[in-house]
Design a protein around this nucleic acid. Sequence first.
DNA 1: CGAGGACTTGATGACGGTCAATCCGTGTGG
DNA 2: CCACACGGATTGACCGTCATCAAGTCCTCG
Lengths: 252, 252
Amino acid sequence: MSAHPIPAVKAAAGAVTHAVNCGDCGLHDICLVEGLSPTELDRLTGMVATRRRVKRGEPLFRAGDRFDAVYPIRLGFFKTRVTSDDGREQVTGFPMPGDILGFDAISAAAFQCDAIALEDAEVCVVPFEKLESLTREFNGLQRQLHRVLSREIVRDQGVMMLLGTMRAEQRIATFVLNLSQRFAQRGFSPREFILRMTREEIGNYLGLKLETVSRTFSKLQDDGVITVEQKRLRIDEPTRLRDIAGATCAPE
Amino acid sequence: MSAHPIPAVKAAAGAVTHAVNCGDCGLHDICLVEGLSPTELDRLTGMVATRRRVKRGEPLFRAGDRFDAVYPIRLGFFKTRVTSDDGREQVTGFPMPGDILGFDAISAAAFQCDAIALEDAEVCVVPFEKLESLTREFNGLQRQLHRVLSREIVRDQGVMMLLGTMRAEQRIATFVLNLSQRFAQRGFSPREFILRMTREEIGNYLGLKLETVSRTFSKLQDDGVITVEQKRLRIDEPTRLRDIAGATCAPE
DNA sequence: CGAGGACTTGATGACGGTCAATCCGTGTGG
DNA sequence: CCACACGGATTGACCGTCATCAAGTCCTCG
C-alpha cells in the first residue's frame, strides 16, 4: 500500500495542518455539516484547522485518554472497542468516513473506548469546547450536533437488538446489509465491497466466534446469496439476504 | 394499589400542571440539574411546567410518536424496548427515577422505542426546543445536556459488552449489581430491593430466556450469593457476586 | 375467592463454542 | 526474485450452554 505523501508543513506528531473546507468534503449528509448556512459552514471550517493521520493498526485514541476533541473520519475504516477490567473485549462498531468518533468521551472527559484504524486513515480534529461554543451561536449546528448524538444512541439500540435476539445467520446477514447501506450512503457500490476487518473482529462485534463467522459466510455462499473470497464480498441476491436478516432495524 | 389523587386542575389527558422546583427534586446528581447556578436552575424550573403520570403497563410514548419533549423520571420504573419489522422485541433498558427518557428521538424527530411504565410512574415534561434554546444561553446546562447524552452512549457500550461476551450467570450477576449501584446512587439500599420487571423482561434485556433467568437466580441462591423470592432480591455476598460478574464495566 | 399470569423445575436437543488440522495470501528477508 | 513464516481463514469433529417443551406451583390482582 503506497504511503501518503508527507505534507511539507511543520506539525505535531501525527498531526497535519492544511487547508480544510467542510463545504467540499463530500460527507455532508452524514457529518455535522448537513443543512448549515454558508456563514455557519465558514465558521465550522475555520474551527477545523487540523487533521490527523492514523496508520493501520494504530489507535486514534485509547480508553482513558483525556478528551478534548471529536474526530469526523475523512478516510479509512476504524473499529471501536471497549475492554472490561477482566480483559474481555467487545467491538462496538466499525465507523467509516463521515462517522464521528469520540462522543462517548463527553460524559467523563475521557475516552471510554479504543478507536483503532483498520487501514491507513485520516480524521478531522474538532476541538469540542470550540464546537460547543459555536453551537451556542448557531441553532442549525446545535440541532445537527444533537441529531448526531441521538443517532449514535439509536444505532446502539440496533446493535442490542442484533445481539439480543438474532441467530448467527441473521446477525451476519444484518451486518452485511448494514455495511452495504452505509457504502451506498457514501456513494460506493452497495453490491460489492472490501471487508476491512478480520473474521475475528466481525465475530467479536456480532457476539460470535470467528469460526462461526467463517462457516456462516460459507453457507450463505453455498446458498448463492453472497460471494466471499477473503476480504472481498459481493451480494448476489439482496432480496434473499434481506429475508434472512428479517427486515430488521439495522444498526446505523 | 390506591389511585393517585386526581389533581384539581384542568389538564390534558394524563398531564398534570403544578408547582415544580428542580432544586427540590432530590435527583440532582443524575438529572440535568447537576452543577447549575441558581439562575440556571430557576430558568430550568420555569420551563418544566408540566408533569405527566403514567399508569402501570401504559406507554409514556411509543416508537413513531412525534418527538417534542424529553422526560426525566420522577417516580417509578420503566422499560424501553425496540421492535423489529418482523416482530422481535428487545428490551434496551430499565430506566428509573433520575434517568431521562426520549433522547433516541432527536435524530428523527420521532421516538424510536417504546417506554412502558412497570409501575405507576410520574415524569417531568421538558419541551426539547425550549431546552435547546436554554442551553444556548447557559453553558452549564449545555455541558450537562451533552454529558447526559454521552452517558447514554457509554451505557449502551456496556450493554453490548454484556450481550456480546458474557455467560448467563455473568449477565445476571452484572444485571443485579447494576441495579444495586443505581439504587445506591439514589439513596436506596444497594443490598435489598424489588425487581419491578418480570423474569421474561429481564431475560429479553439480557439476551436469555425466562427459564434461564429463573434457573440462574436459583443457582445463585443455592450458592448463597443472593436471596430471591419472587420480586424481592437481597444480595448476601456482594464480593462473590462481583467476582461472578467479572469486574465488568456495568452498564449505567 | 377465583383466574390467569408469573415463576420454578425437569427432560431433551440444537446451535454455536471449542479444539485441532490444514490451507491460503501476504509480506518479509535472504 | 523466491522461499518461508505468520496471521488469517476454512473446515471438521465433538461438546457444552442455553433454548425449547412441558408440567406443576404460587402469587397477584381483579
